[in-house]
């Protein structure tokens, strides 16, 4: 039965890997914020599977809500597109 838990954990971690890669190579900062929010949601599910309900409560509010809002404020006050 533990295999099912571990498989779900593996899927969330690989989703996190893919979306963190997309967030870092993206040139549009707003899209990158969206990708990093998806990464945060995947990791919140991973924390839940790892039996850490305390961290889920803090992490969902901080990483998905407050953090995205803070970055959107930063992008709105500075530049949106990255020149490589």
């Amino acid at each position: 039965m533990i295999e099912i838990h571990l498989l779900m954990l593996l899927i969330t971690v690989i989703i996190g890997l893919i979306f963190s890669y997309l967030a870092i190579i993206e040139k549009d900062s707003l899209k990158a914020i969206g990708f990093s929010a998806v990464h945060a949601i995947a990791y919140a599910i991973a924390f839940y599977i790892l039996m850490a309900p305390d961290i889920v409560l803090a992490y969902v509010a901080v990483a998905v809500g407050i953090y995205s809002a803070l970055l959107i404020f930063v992008v709105s006050k500075t530049e949106r597109y990255e020149v490589v």
Binding site: V13, S20, S29, F47, E79
Partner: peptide, 21 residues
């Protein structure tokens, strides 16, 4: 390697979250 400071901040949070996990 990313030149944009905002992008550096996004990468920094991804780093923190992964270390926590």
């Amino acid at each position: 390697r990313r030149p944009n400071l905002t992008k550096k901040l996004i990468a920094l949070t991804i780093f923190t979250d992964t270390a926590n996990l």
